[in-house]
Design a protein around this nucleic acid. Structure first.
Lengths: 410, 410
DNA sequence: TGAGTTTGTGCCGCACCTAAACAAACTACG
DNA sequence: CGTAGTTTGTTTAGGTGCGGCACAAACTCA
């Protein structure tokens, strides 16, 4: 219905329409100078200069006019553009099986302040979210920075537009908890300005990797990752998360990757979810798995420290073959131009990159003619950075409106 | 790189930026009057009026100013907007296993003229494409209409941006044939104005169904269809085909839908491709399959005429279960808000819609909470109409530029 | 017949962008 | 060391699409 209206709204709404795209270019590091900005935006130097000046006036970017700031080859040296290191921030929060984490993140994905990870766990979402928001509020008070929004990463599918967590399996939360609204309420009560958002942690990790990590420049980025249990996926298309019609896309855990495999709770058997997660790895290696919240760490140490052990190596190769089959299936369906792996899958890739790439190429239909690059993720706390991206999005879409909205009502 | 430049180009390039969106609304029947156009575009009545006047001056739409043309409830009756029935057309061509087909298609997906289907088949793409273009050129001469582009549907994955047919299995063509360029060359030689495009037939059928058929209004439309052999898929997101990074997305044929199934040439076993196509159906029903180009017809007659036969019914239910499993897998990955089925899958749906919907709901993760609507396709020759959509796209994107381009060089 | 409602159009002005000329800051080279 | 060449940044003027507004038109309803 309003799909087309959205298309032309960039033109129709007043205010510099190039402001958002320009900020996004600086934010993602693709516009180091005004000259590059001019070329990337496809506008005249006059316009790019005006846009940069306005972004600087808004306190979002810095223009380094010192001579010699940028060493060009010839001609007048360009001034360096960068995000404002003392500009506004967003509150990023992450809930995981072990506890929670809060941070302040500036433009450019720069983590400004981090609260020490806490291990408080509770069956009441409001309690946990209240605690993480409190930690964030403390960071904000300490830093004195202006806040323009808040983002939350949870280990669960998040339905849109309701903002409910459908399967917070590793938390003891009830399925369908309205985490977005609870989080927004806690943010509001803490006196933190700006809108609040929530998303799946793997989705947000993918967004972060696309903008600041191993996924930079990819047009169709596929991310697959494990936590301690299960497998998550995400797709970033042209810089935006592809979350499907109701936020539930990329539930990749139940692709069949082993026809002879073990039964899965979904009703099938040999699903990616139960065949390639840390528990599967430890089982395949003949190890006794420890407590659930240490499965990933246990697997990681095994892979890095005892890869020489034949049992470990065999388990690794078995999981790589399964994972490769799953990735090949996703390649056939999604045709990404890059794949980034996280969690245990990242470890498997590091252990034997050639084997994984070979399996994917062999089992994907068009893999022989090129092959998709498969890379490990590169960001620390990428879900946290991705949660921040979620909160930054309104500012990137329309800086004037977003800043006014987070300032006006305050 | 230029992803963002594209975003703001709507604003930066001169000329009425609302022209394209407005034409698309009329084209897809979503703007029957200027008042609706005003609302859908989100502009003022003045602007919508000016846009409509310009589109009329370009000969693309008609404004029916006769009193009583539109019966409103109250107030001044609005004038009816419609595509110009005598306006420009595009040449649509389709190659299938049996032969080829050509047609002229106007805005609104209206087929203006059709050449009788020919059964000429050749191992030389240039020969077949030359024949279909000749048929189209004859139609153009007979009709005297202006042509603004040409689109081609082929039963093969089409790599982008090369425009090559990677697996024209049911034609005897060499893999990797540059069908787009051959087609464009033939179109040019025939003196037909405008650019030429080529795409996979299922993709184009999905595009047609989205704009003029069972997929209208869907935001994330998944189409799955069979020809005589194999299974194809397509996804339309926000009105645009999702073809992945190189045109090869939605190769859904090799999802595993039967762990105990027969081996597939892809290296797996129990693939959707070999478990749910007409050959699989006839085999399951215990029938002796006839010649390859009649498998679909044979299956269709069996399902419609002899559904009472226990063997037919059992085969139907078996295929429905397999198809449902495949669709559930796609639902988990793509999260569409509508599914449209074609070919044999459409017949299976018609035969027992409840069973298919139940299987999909049961085997998709979030199916219990709602369920995705599954509908049969509704357009005749939807691949042909979709090929026309491909050719219309530049006009919908920028009417002024597209019309000038197809006129100027002529 | 007049009030109310919805649709279509003419006019004005704003805001954003392009174009073009100019100024600034460097490199290259004789 | 100075001048030509190159690239970047800024200023000014001008064009243009679109919003806002007022008004006209064409119907329904009482």
């Amino acid at each position: 219905m309003n799909g087309k209206a959205t298309t032309i709204r960039t033109r129709l709404e007043r205010g510099r329409s190039a402001l958002g795209p320009a900020l996004e270019l600086v934010h993602t590091g693709r516009a180091p100078t005004r000259a590059v900005l001019t070329a990337e935006l496809g506008v005249t130097r006059a316009t790019a200069g005006a846009v940069a000046a306005e972004l600087e006036a808004l306190g979002l970017i810095q223009v380094d006019s010192r001579p010699g700031a940028a060493a060009g080859s010839q001609g007048r040296p360009s001034h360096r553009l960068a995000v404002n290191d003392s500009g506004p921030v967003v509150l990023a929060a992450q809930i995981h099986a072990d506890g929670y984490r809060a941070a302040l993140v500036g433009l450019g994905g720069r983590t400004v302040a981090t609260a020490p990870g806490r291990k408080t766990v509770s069956a009441d979402p409001a309690q946990v979210l209240g605690a993480v928001v409190d930690a964030g509020a403390q960071l904000l008070r300490d830093s004195g920075r202006r806040c323009v929004g808040a983002g939350l990463a949870v280990p669960s599918a998040v339905a849109e537009p309701e903002g409910t967590a459908l399967n917070p399996l590793h938390l003891a939360w009830p399925a369908g908890s309205p985490v977005r609204d609870i989080f927004a309420e806690q943010v509001r009560e803490a006196g933190i300005a700006g809108p609040a958002f929530a998303g799946n942690d793997v989705n947000l990790a993918a967004l972060a990797e696309h903008r600041h990590g191993a996924g930079r420049g990819a047009q169709h980025l596929l991310c697959v990752a494990t936590g301690h249990r299960g497998v998550g996926g995400a797709l970033v298309v042209d810089g935006r998360l592809h979350t499907g019609s109701s936020g539930l896309a990329l539930e990749v855990g139940h692709l069949t990757v082993n026809p002879d495999g073990r039964p899965c709770y979904c009703g099938g058997r040999g699903c990616l979810d139960v065949e390639t997660d840390p528990l599967a790895f430890l089982t395949a290696a003949g190890l006794a798995p420890g407590p659930e919240t240490s499965l990933l760490q246990q697997s990681r140490e095994l892979l890095r420290g005892q890869y020489g052990d034949p049992a470990v190596r065999a388990a690794c190769e078995e999981l790589i073959d399964r994972l490769g089959l799953g990735l090949a299936g996703l390649v056939n369906i999604l045709n990404p131009d890059r794949i980034v792996l996280g969690g245990l899958h990242r470890e498997l890739l590091d252990a034997d990159p050639e084997r994984l790439r070979a399996v994917v190429a062999d089992r994907s239909l068009w893999g022989r003619s090129g092959g998709v690059p498969i890379l490990p993720c590169t960001l620390d706390h990428n879900s946290l950075v991705g949660a921040a991206e979620l909160a930054w999005q309104p500012v990137l879409d329309d800086p004037l409106a977003a800043l006014a909205a987070s300032q006006g009502p305050a």
